[in-house]
Simulated assay, not measured.
Amino acid sequence: MSSRLRLLAPAELDVQQRALYAEITGGPRATGPQHFALTDAEGRLNGPFNAMLLSPELGRALQELGAAIRYRTCLTDRIRETAILVVAQAWDSAFERHAHERVGAAAGLTETELLALRDGRDPLLSDPAELAAWVFACALTSRSGALGEGEYDKARAALGERALFELSTLVGYYSTLALQLRVFAVPAPPS
C-alpha cells in the first residue's frame, strides 16, 4: 500500500507550513548523527512529519512534544529507545521500527535485544531501570493499558516518579504517531 498522503514539497508550503518545516529540519532532529532521513531527496518530510504540515499549529505542538521527549527528559537513550520500540511492536508501526531500531542500535541496544523487541519478546535486559521501563511500556501498550499497584510501585522504585511521567508521555506520543502513520498508510523508507 502506498501512502494516502501526497508528500508536500518545500516550494508549495504556505507560510505556517514553511515555519513548521524549518523547525523540524533545523531543530534537534536535524543536528548530530542522522540514523534515518528526515527528508527525501526532494526535501519532502518523511514519516509522521509530512502529516504534521496538514495542521501547522497542531503539528508544531506535536513536534515540540516529540523533541522534548527525545532530547529533554531524564530517560537514558536505551530506555527511551526500548520504550519506543515497544510501541512500534504493539502498533506494528513499520516506520517507527525502521527509524528507532537504527537509533536504538546507536544507543547501545544489541541486535539480540532489537530482535526481541521487534518480536514482542522479553529482551532480557540486565539493568534494573531498563527492565522496569520495558515492563512499564509493555503494560501501557497492552490491550487493557492497566498497571497494577505492584507494577506501579516496582516501576516507581526503579525509575522514580519523574521518569514514570516522562515514560508514560513517551508511550502516548509514539502511540499517537503510530496511529497517524497507520491512518495515512505511511510506509517505512526502503532499507
Rank of each mutant, 00 (worst) to 15 (best):
A83I: 01
L85A: 12
V86D: 07
V87E: 12
V87M: 12
A88H: 05
A90G: 13
A90N: 09
A94T: 04
A94R: 02
E96Y: 04
A99N: 05
A99L: 05
H100A: 10
V103F: 11
G104F: 05
A105L: 03
A106S: 15
L109W: 04
T110L: 07
T110P: 11
T110W: 00
E111N: 08
T112H: 11
E113C: 10
E113L: 05
E113N: 06
L115H: 10
L115W: 02
A116M: 05
D119V: 01
D122I: 02
P123V: 02
P123C: 09
L125V: 04
S126T: 13
S126E: 13
P128D: 06
P128R: 00
E130N: 07
E130V: 03
A132D: 10
A133Y: 03
A133I: 00
W134L: 08
C138G: 13
A139T: 07
S142M: 02
S142N: 10
S142F: 01
R143A: 15
S144W: 00
G145A: 09
L147H: 04
L147K: 00
E149K: 02
E149Q: 12
E151S: 14
A155V: 07
R156N: 14
R156K: 13
A158G: 13
E161F: 00
R162P: 10
A163G: 06
L167E: 07
Y173W: 02
Y173R: 00
Y174L: 11
S175P: 05
T176F: 12
